[in-house]
Amino acid sequence: MKGQEWYQTAEVAEEYDTKRFSDGGRLIDEREKEAVLSAVGPVDDKRVLEIACGTGRFTTMLAQRGADIVGLDISPAMLQEGRKKARAAGVDDHLEFMRGDAARLPFPDDHFETVIAMRFFHLADTPASFLAELRRVARKQVVFDTFRRFSTRSIYNWLLPMGSRLYARAEIEELLDGAGLQLAGEEHDFFFPYGLYRQLPDAMATRVRELDDVIMDSPIGEYVASVSYWDARLQEE
Protein backbone atom coordinates (compact mmCIF):
# COMPACT_ATOMS: atom_id res chain seq x y z
CA MET A 1 0.00 0.00 0.00
CA LYS A 2 1.19 3.52 -0.81
CA GLY A 3 2.03 5.79 2.10
CA GLN A 4 1.94 3.18 4.87
CA GLU A 5 4.67 4.78 6.96
CA TRP A 6 3.17 8.26 6.69
CA TYR A 7 -0.30 6.98 7.48
CA GLN A 8 0.71 5.21 10.68
CA THR A 9 2.29 8.14 12.49
CA ALA A 10 0.58 9.46 15.63
CA GLU A 11 0.77 13.03 14.33
CA VAL A 12 -1.19 12.18 11.19
CA ALA A 13 -3.80 10.20 13.13
CA GLU A 14 -4.40 13.00 15.65
CA GLU A 15 -4.94 15.59 12.93
CA TYR A 16 -6.57 13.37 10.33
CA ASP A 17 -10.23 14.30 10.86
CA THR A 18 -9.52 17.98 11.49
CA LYS A 19 -7.49 18.40 8.31
CA ARG A 20 -9.84 16.44 6.07
CA PHE A 21 -13.34 16.83 7.42
CA SER A 22 -13.57 20.29 8.95
CA ASP A 23 -14.67 23.43 7.07
CA GLY A 24 -15.25 22.41 3.43
CA GLY A 25 -14.21 18.85 4.18
CA ARG A 26 -17.42 18.47 6.18
CA LEU A 27 -19.29 18.21 2.87
CA ILE A 28 -17.11 15.27 1.84
CA ASP A 29 -17.71 13.48 5.13
CA GLU A 30 -21.47 13.95 4.87
CA ARG A 31 -21.61 12.72 1.28
CA GLU A 32 -19.47 9.65 1.92
CA LYS A 33 -21.59 8.64 4.89
CA GLU A 34 -24.74 9.12 2.83
CA ALA A 35 -23.31 6.89 0.09
CA VAL A 36 -22.42 4.14 2.58
CA LEU A 37 -25.83 4.20 4.25
CA SER A 38 -27.56 4.15 0.86
CA ALA A 39 -25.60 1.06 -0.19
CA VAL A 40 -25.81 -1.02 2.99
CA GLY A 41 -29.40 -0.19 3.95
CA PRO A 42 -30.64 -1.22 7.43
CA VAL A 43 -27.77 -2.56 9.53
CA ASP A 44 -29.45 -3.55 12.78
CA ASP A 45 -27.72 -6.77 13.93
CA LYS A 46 -25.96 -7.07 10.56
CA ARG A 47 -22.38 -8.35 10.77
CA VAL A 48 -20.17 -5.78 9.04
CA LEU A 49 -16.44 -5.33 8.49
CA GLU A 50 -14.82 -2.04 7.61
CA ILE A 51 -11.26 -2.34 6.37
CA ALA A 52 -8.89 0.63 6.46
CA CYS A 53 -11.29 2.10 9.01
CA GLY A 54 -8.88 4.87 10.01
CA THR A 55 -10.38 6.97 12.79
CA GLY A 56 -13.63 5.01 12.68
CA ARG A 57 -15.92 7.47 10.91
CA PHE A 58 -18.01 4.73 9.32
CA THR A 59 -17.41 2.08 11.98
CA THR A 60 -18.84 4.30 14.71
CA MET A 61 -21.69 5.56 12.52
CA LEU A 62 -22.83 2.01 11.70
CA ALA A 63 -22.44 0.86 15.30
CA GLN A 64 -24.78 3.69 16.31
CA ARG A 65 -27.32 2.20 13.90
CA GLY A 66 -27.09 -1.25 15.45
CA ALA A 67 -24.51 -3.01 13.29
CA ASP A 68 -22.32 -5.77 14.74
CA ILE A 69 -19.19 -4.22 13.31
CA VAL A 70 -15.42 -4.66 13.27
CA GLY A 71 -13.13 -1.84 12.18
CA LEU A 72 -9.75 -3.05 10.92
CA ASP A 73 -6.74 -0.87 10.17
CA ILE A 74 -2.99 -1.24 9.89
CA SER A 75 -2.28 1.86 12.00
CA PRO A 76 -2.39 1.59 15.81
CA ALA A 77 -2.55 5.38 16.04
CA MET A 78 -5.62 5.55 13.80
CA LEU A 79 -7.29 2.79 15.78
CA GLN A 80 -6.65 4.68 19.00
CA GLU A 81 -8.44 7.70 17.55
CA GLY A 82 -11.27 5.40 16.49
CA ARG A 83 -11.66 4.07 20.01
CA LYS A 84 -11.87 7.64 21.34
CA LYS A 85 -14.58 8.42 18.82
CA ALA A 86 -16.55 5.30 19.73
CA ARG A 87 -16.35 6.13 23.44
CA ALA A 88 -17.55 9.66 22.80
CA ALA A 89 -20.49 8.27 20.83
CA GLY A 90 -21.31 5.74 23.54
CA VAL A 91 -20.89 2.67 21.33
CA ASP A 92 -17.46 1.43 22.40
CA ASP A 93 -19.01 -1.56 24.16
CA HIS A 94 -20.55 -3.08 21.02
CA LEU A 95 -17.99 -2.64 18.27
CA GLU A 96 -14.42 -3.85 17.89
CA PHE A 97 -11.33 -2.16 16.50
CA MET A 98 -8.44 -4.40 15.60
CA ARG A 99 -5.13 -4.10 13.81
CA GLY A 100 -4.78 -6.13 10.65
CA ASP A 101 -3.65 -6.28 7.04
CA ALA A 102 -6.30 -6.05 4.33
CA ALA A 103 -4.22 -8.39 2.18
CA ARG A 104 -4.58 -11.18 4.77
CA LEU A 105 -7.82 -10.71 6.64
CA PRO A 106 -7.94 -12.74 9.88
CA PHE A 107 -11.47 -14.03 9.33
CA PRO A 108 -13.01 -17.18 7.85
CA ASP A 109 -14.79 -17.24 4.51
CA ASP A 110 -18.24 -15.62 4.33
CA HIS A 111 -17.88 -14.24 7.85
CA PHE A 112 -19.53 -10.86 7.28
CA GLU A 113 -22.71 -9.95 5.47
CA THR A 114 -21.14 -6.70 4.26
CA VAL A 115 -17.56 -5.50 3.86
CA ILE A 116 -16.85 -1.78 3.44
CA ALA A 117 -13.66 -0.22 2.08
CA MET A 118 -13.77 3.56 1.84
CA ARG A 119 -10.69 5.63 0.99
CA PHE A 120 -8.80 2.42 0.32
CA PHE A 121 -8.51 1.53 -3.33
CA HIS A 122 -6.83 4.78 -4.36
CA LEU A 123 -3.79 3.53 -2.40
CA ALA A 124 -3.99 -0.17 -3.29
CA ASP A 125 -0.98 -1.37 -5.25
CA THR A 126 -2.62 -4.71 -6.14
CA PRO A 127 -6.36 -3.93 -6.24
CA ALA A 128 -7.38 -7.29 -7.71
CA SER A 129 -5.87 -9.27 -4.84
CA PHE A 130 -7.31 -6.93 -2.24
CA LEU A 131 -10.79 -7.11 -3.75
CA ALA A 132 -10.60 -10.90 -3.89
CA GLU A 133 -9.77 -10.97 -0.17
CA LEU A 134 -12.69 -8.68 0.64
CA ARG A 135 -14.99 -10.90 -1.38
CA ARG A 136 -13.67 -13.98 0.44
CA VAL A 137 -14.88 -12.80 3.83
CA ALA A 138 -18.12 -11.24 2.53
CA ARG A 139 -21.26 -13.34 2.40
CA LYS A 140 -23.38 -10.86 0.43
CA GLN A 141 -21.94 -7.43 -0.29
CA VAL A 142 -18.79 -5.37 -0.81
CA VAL A 143 -19.06 -1.56 -0.80
CA PHE A 144 -16.13 0.62 -1.85
CA ASP A 145 -15.22 3.88 -3.53
CA THR A 146 -12.68 4.86 -6.17
CA PHE A 147 -11.35 8.04 -7.69
CA ARG A 148 -12.20 8.38 -11.37
CA ARG A 149 -9.80 8.55 -14.25
CA PHE A 150 -10.53 11.25 -16.86
CA SER A 151 -11.85 13.70 -14.27
CA THR A 152 -10.67 16.79 -12.41
CA ARG A 153 -9.11 14.35 -9.97
CA SER A 154 -6.46 13.49 -12.57
CA ILE A 155 -5.50 17.18 -12.77
CA TYR A 156 -5.26 17.48 -9.00
CA ASN A 157 -3.60 14.11 -8.50
CA TRP A 158 -0.06 15.17 -9.23
CA LEU A 159 -0.18 17.63 -6.32
CA LEU A 160 -0.67 14.89 -3.73
CA PRO A 161 2.45 13.68 -1.90
CA MET A 162 1.50 9.99 -2.29
CA GLY A 163 -0.50 10.19 -5.49
CA SER A 164 -3.69 8.21 -5.98
CA ARG A 165 -4.67 5.34 -8.20
CA LEU A 166 -7.43 6.37 -10.61
CA TYR A 167 -9.89 3.97 -12.21
CA ALA A 168 -11.92 3.95 -15.40
CA ARG A 169 -15.28 2.19 -15.30
CA ALA A 170 -13.98 -0.66 -17.46
CA GLU A 171 -11.27 -1.36 -14.86
CA ILE A 172 -13.87 -1.59 -12.09
CA GLU A 173 -15.99 -4.00 -14.10
CA GLU A 174 -12.93 -6.17 -14.78
CA LEU A 175 -11.93 -6.15 -11.11
CA LEU A 176 -15.43 -7.10 -9.99
CA ASP A 177 -15.71 -9.94 -12.46
CA GLY A 178 -12.30 -11.27 -11.47
CA ALA A 179 -13.31 -11.29 -7.81
CA GLY A 180 -16.63 -13.06 -8.41
CA LEU A 181 -18.67 -9.92 -7.80
CA GLN A 182 -21.33 -8.14 -9.81
CA LEU A 183 -22.38 -4.53 -9.72
CA ALA A 184 -25.68 -3.93 -7.93
CA GLY A 185 -25.58 -0.17 -7.57
CA GLU A 186 -23.40 2.84 -8.21
CA GLU A 187 -23.29 6.55 -7.49
CA HIS A 188 -20.97 9.20 -8.96
CA ASP A 189 -20.28 12.61 -7.47
CA PHE A 190 -17.98 15.61 -7.03
CA PHE A 191 -16.97 17.36 -10.22
CA PHE A 192 -14.48 19.33 -8.15
CA PRO A 193 -11.84 17.20 -6.41
CA TYR A 194 -11.82 16.65 -2.66
CA GLY A 195 -8.65 18.67 -2.23
CA LEU A 196 -10.37 21.85 -3.31
CA TYR A 197 -13.09 21.50 -0.69
CA ARG A 198 -10.53 20.99 2.06
CA GLN A 199 -8.89 24.30 1.19
CA LEU A 200 -12.08 26.33 1.45
CA PRO A 201 -13.89 27.78 4.46
CA ASP A 202 -17.30 26.28 5.09
CA ALA A 203 -19.40 29.07 3.56
CA MET A 204 -17.38 29.20 0.34
CA ALA A 205 -17.28 25.41 0.08
CA THR A 206 -21.07 25.33 0.36
CA ARG A 207 -21.34 27.66 -2.64
CA VAL A 208 -18.93 25.51 -4.63
CA ARG A 209 -20.95 22.44 -3.68
CA GLU A 210 -24.12 24.09 -5.03
CA LEU A 211 -22.39 24.53 -8.39
CA ASP A 212 -21.06 20.99 -8.15
CA ASP A 213 -24.61 19.68 -7.63
CA VAL A 214 -25.82 21.49 -10.75
CA ILE A 215 -23.06 19.87 -12.81
CA MET A 216 -23.69 16.43 -11.32
CA ASP A 217 -27.43 16.67 -11.95
CA SER A 218 -26.83 17.48 -15.62
CA PRO A 219 -26.66 14.85 -18.40
CA ILE A 220 -22.86 14.90 -18.26
CA GLY A 221 -22.67 14.42 -14.49
CA GLU A 222 -21.81 10.74 -14.46
CA TYR A 223 -19.06 11.24 -17.01
CA VAL A 224 -17.25 14.09 -15.23
CA ALA A 225 -17.52 12.83 -11.63
CA SER A 226 -14.25 12.50 -9.75
CA VAL A 227 -15.52 9.92 -7.24
CA SER A 228 -17.56 6.73 -7.62
CA TYR A 229 -19.29 4.66 -4.94
CA TRP A 230 -19.76 0.99 -5.87
CA ASP A 231 -22.20 -1.51 -4.39
CA ALA A 232 -21.11 -5.02 -5.39
CA ARG A 233 -22.82 -8.33 -4.62
CA LEU A 234 -21.64 -11.90 -4.94
CA GLN A 235 -22.23 -13.34 -8.37
CA GLU A 236 -25.09 -15.75 -8.62
CA GLU A 237 -23.96 -19.28 -9.39
Rank of each mutant, 00 (worst) to 15 (best):
R26A: 13
V115L: 11
E15D: 13
G24W: 10
I74W: 00
Q64Y: 00
A52D: 05
E50G: 08
M61F: 03
G82C: 08
F107R: 04
D93V: 05
D73E: 05
P76V: 08
M61I: 03
M61Y: 01
A35N: 07
M61T: 13
L105C: 10
E96I: 12
A10K: 12
T55R: 05
A117Y: 03
R65N: 07
R83S: 11
V43R: 04
A13C: 11
L49K: 08
A13D: 12
A117N: 04
D93A: 12
A103Q: 12
G66A: 05
E32M: 13
R99F: 00
E50C: 08
M98F: 00
G90S: 10
D29N: 10
D101S: 09
F58G: 02
A10F: 00
M78Q: 15
E14N: 06
R83E: 15
P106E: 08
E15R: 15
I28S: 04
G90Q: 10
D110H: 14
A13F: 10
D109R: 12
E30W: 02
V115P: 12
I116P: 06
T59A: 11
P108R: 07
D92W: 05
L62Y: 02
T18S: 13
I51Q: 06
V70S: 07
E113S: 15
E113M: 02
D68P: 00
F58L: 14
K33Q: 15
R65F: 01
G71H: 09
H94A: 03
K19Q: 14
A39L: 08
E11W: 01
T18P: 00
D92P: 02
K46I: 11
E30S: 11
G41M: 10
A103N: 08
K33N: 14
T60N: 04
A117C: 05
P108L: 00
A39S: 15
E15I: 01
A102G: 15
K84S: 04
P106C: 07
E11R: 11
A13Y: 09
D73I: 03
A89R: 09
F58Q: 09
A86R: 09
E14K: 14
E113L: 04
V70R: 12
G66I: 03
E34C: 01
V70F: 13
R87Q: 14
E15Q: 14
M78R: 07
E11V: 09
G24Y: 10
R26K: 13
L27V: 06
D110C: 06
V48W: 03
E11Q: 14
D101Y: 06
D101N: 15
A102K: 02
Y16G: 04
V91P: 01
V12N: 13
V36Q: 04
A67D: 12
A86K: 09
E30D: 13
L95T: 09
E96T: 15
D73Y: 04
E113W: 02
E32Q: 12
F21L: 06
R57E: 08
D29W: 12
L49M: 08
D68G: 00
Y16T: 05
K19L: 15
E30N: 06
R99H: 00
D68H: 10
S75V: 11
D17N: 12
Q64C: 04
A88L: 13
T18C: 03
V12S: 05
